[in-house]
């Protein structure tokens, strides 16, 4: 309560305010740790502490700390270039693939540090799956797309040798394909053309196929990077319904530009603002209806960003 009042006083009298200013002379609101302290019920799935990410000289993420609860939907919102995608990609170490990236801080999955020597990236990425902004199915059949991950991990053997030795897992594979496609709400649309090339599907179907492919390796966390931004409203609605269902079993972390979408589907929301700062993190209703930060309020109501 008192914080908010102070805040308003500060902006009312910018000249008298001693808070730091940017080069343009604009007053910068001082962020407070309390705004990101979010007390949730349930278990912590991912705990991030003081996460800093640099791309070369660019400081993309500044000391972010937040805990993500299990089996819920966490939305990350903020203007372009605010570091929310960087944050997301830090959770399954996809940033390792960028050679200029330097990552400091700690990310713990179920209490185990993932930024330390000896972490098995294969195992990590199996447990923390990812869906990308634009649908990116492989130029293979629908069946092969789903079976790709398990096959490469050696969980399914359907190759020529396996068939010759009569230990092909074709049946297991088909069960897996059906289960993943059903979970991704795509089975009814494609069950009769599993051997067609996945690139022949519509954009929305492709994205659900990518979600199904992600489910095929049995993840615990699903990271989604603006999964609906390339889709039309109907396909978007389907994806949103799907995310709702997935949250019963999986921990979903989703980056979105669409504020209504974040409000609709998420249980808690984290707001990143320009400069790679986590400004506010809390219950979605609280963040959208009664944000602590004035900048967050401005962003949510569309005054800037």
């Amino acid at each position: 309560m008192s914080e908010k009042t102070t805040q308003q006083t500060q902006t009312a009298q910018p000249d008298a305010d001693p808070s730091p200013t940017t080069t343009t002379g604009e007053t910068v609101e001082q962020t407070r740790d309390e705004w990101t302290d979010y007390e949730f019920r349930g278990e912590t799935k991912i705990a991030v502490e003081d996460l800093d990410v640099h791309y070369g000289d660019d400081h993309a993420l500044k000391g972010v700390s937040m805990e993500i609860p299990e089996k819920s939907v966490t939305a990350l919102i903020g203007p372009s270039g605010c570091g929310k995608s960087t944050y997301l990609r830090s959770l399954n170490r996809m940033n390792d693939r960028v050679s200029s990236a330097r990552i400091d801080g700690s990310v713990r999955l179920d209490g185990r540090e993932i930024y330390q020597d000896g972490v098995n990236l294969v195992e990590l990425r199996k447990r923390v799956g990812m869906v990308f902004q634009s649908p990116n199915p492989f130029p293979k059949t629908i069946r092969e797309n789903i079976a790709y991950g398990p096959k490469k991990h050696g969980d399914l053997e359907t190759g020529l040798l396996a068939r010759l030795l009569n230990r092909s897992d074709a049946d297991e594979r088909d069960e897996l394909v059906e289960r993943c496609l059903r979970d991704a709400a795509l089975w009814d649309e494609v069950s009769d053309r599993l051997d067609d090339n996945a690139l022949g599907l519509s954009g929305g179907q492709q994205q659900r196929l990518c979600i199904a492919r992600c489910l095929s390796v049995d993840p615990e966390v699903i990271l989604m990077d603006e999964p609906a931004s390339a889709l039309d409203p109907i396909a978007t609605a389907k994806i949103e319904d799907l995310i709702d269902d997935l949250a019963e079993e999986y921990t979903v972390v989703i980056v979105t530009h669409n504020m209504q979408q974040a409000a609709r589907i998420s249980d808690q929301t984290a707001v990143f603002l320009t400069g790679g700062e986590l400004v506010e993190y809390g219950d979605t209703d609280q963040v959208f209806e009664n944000p602590h930060s004035e900048r967050v309020e401005d962003y949510i109501t569309g005054k800037f960003g």
């Binding site: 996809m94 693939r97 199996k126 990812m130 990308f132 492989f138 130029p139 790709y148 991950g149 992600c214």
Partner: peptide, 20 residues
């Protein structure tokens, strides 16, 4: 995107190259 998708499934680099 293909390489990213494959890496996100935990598939190793060489297997990604060979299969995708």
């Amino acid at each position: 995107e293909y390489r990213d998708a494959s890496a996100a499934l935990g598939v190793s680099k060489w297997q990604t190259i060979r299969s995708v």
